[in-house]
Design a protein around this nucleic acid. Sequence first.
DNA 1: TCGCTTTGTTAGAGTCGCCTAACAAGGAGG
DNA 2: CCTCCTTGTTAGGCGACTCTAACAAAGCGA
Lengths: 260, 260
Amino acid sequence: MSGGTPGSTGAELALTPALEDYLETIFALVRETGMARVRDIASARGVKAGSVSPALARLADLGLVRYARREYVSLTGQGEAEARRVTARHTVLTHFFQEVLQLPVAVAERDACAIEHSLSDETMDRLVRLFEFLRSCPQGRDSFVDRFHACPLMQEDVPACTQGCRLPTGQSAGPRPPAEVPLTALFSLRPGERGRVARIDAKGPVRQRLLDMGILPDALIELERTAPLGDPIWIRLQGYQLSLRRTEAEAVLVRPVPPV
Amino acid sequence: MSGGTPGSTGAELALTPALEDYLETIFALVRETGMARVRDIASARGVKAGSVSPALARLADLGLVRYARREYVSLTGQGEAEARRVTARHTVLTHFFQEVLQLPVAVAERDACAIEHSLSDETMDRLVRLFEFLRSCPQGRDSFVDRFHACPLMQEDVPACTQGCRLPTGQSAGPRPPAEVPLTALFSLRPGERGRVARIDAKGPVRQRLLDMGILPDALIELERTAPLGDPIWIRLQGYQLSLRRTEAEAVLVRPVPPV
DNA sequence: TCGCTTTGTTAGAGTCGCCTAACAAGGAGG
DNA sequence: CCTCCTTGTTAGGCGACTCTAACAAAGCGA
């Protein structure tokens, strides 16, 4: 195996997501229990046994598994390499979701499974670089991940990170003055004025609704007009008009942008 | 529209990825060119016109588009909301790929399209928080993104970030001594010794191959044995045995782990 | 008015992945 | 030996998505 075509990343092999999942499952089963039977593969993947057989036949055709009918399944050298590749992607994504984004294991696993087959090599590579950075740079780990996690933005309930994150770590009053355009509520713009979204001070459904509407950091919003009592306000976003309730609009903090 | 069931994130609507793509495409077409015709939708999505008609019929059934045969297509209120939701996800992902991971536009777009339909709301929310952090915290932006990008790890050719990233920014000799286990080459472990992967000092195909094999940051590796001349070396990773060529093994830097 | 071009629709077929249900192959026990 | 149970295979279907190719509806020019 160590003598095969050097530099091949196995990219010429076009596996469907489902087949990659089967490989990954077999790899994990063999590692954990020593063997992979049709039954175990089916229950691990949450499908019926009847779906597994034809998939194994296809993998055998591709030379990735050894598949003697009615016997345990095992990976060929090429199959193991492919399985390792997929597993590596899964691992990277799971770690990113859990350690950087602080998502619960279940969500991290689910999302990793959902996207591990479709990301490009470049993207995976950059994600790995991010880890190398976070894990190997003493300043890195302590300055970014920890700071991000300590930032009020990550504590669901606390909406007060306007001037930068104060940290237990020293150097809080560094040589760098904030010197930024102050944040104002979207709500307090005048009709015709514009601003870029800087933060969304809401949680749960309201936050989700705002995000779903496309109110994302750095989005350019123009306030069109407000109703007499200021309750529904109309904004323009990406060329489209949108109406917001006051409670929603209050949660949106923007940096005013000078008119054209 | 602003009076409808409050707090609904539209989650009960089960759209297939393809249908979401159609919505997104229509939304963009209407925004950019003022109208959406079957032909334009087809070419924007890279499919034939014959595939578009039935999809539009299904979207019309769901009440998401107005679809008078042989006329321009337009989104209903609900359809526009849904389109905005999908577009928002696309935007967040594209920005993350471009601005944090520094991927070229084409790759960022491709990957965003590929995964925008499958990530959970929680994950998207955390990604947005990451942006809020990076954009709103003066220390944040300057300390993390810039430092990450300036880090030699991000410059393909420079493999020399062993002791932390030196930066043009001040505070390089901070109050925090590295005080870490020094990095050693995987190669210089003795048989039976173990280490955790800290960095991979390779680029291009070699790097990709190592990543594909599951040699990722933080992975636990045990060196099993080396060939007489030290050229192929055998390691154990995740319970599996693996053989590496010397040139590959030299690129892997680990932090030795005390034996059990 | 006739025909041509552009545009959109419909029908038929193919792929992929899953399901259910019927069937086959062994092992264990009476 | 026969039966029951577990396990795996095969066949037939279904839903989602796509394609091609034939067909229909307009607009446009001569």
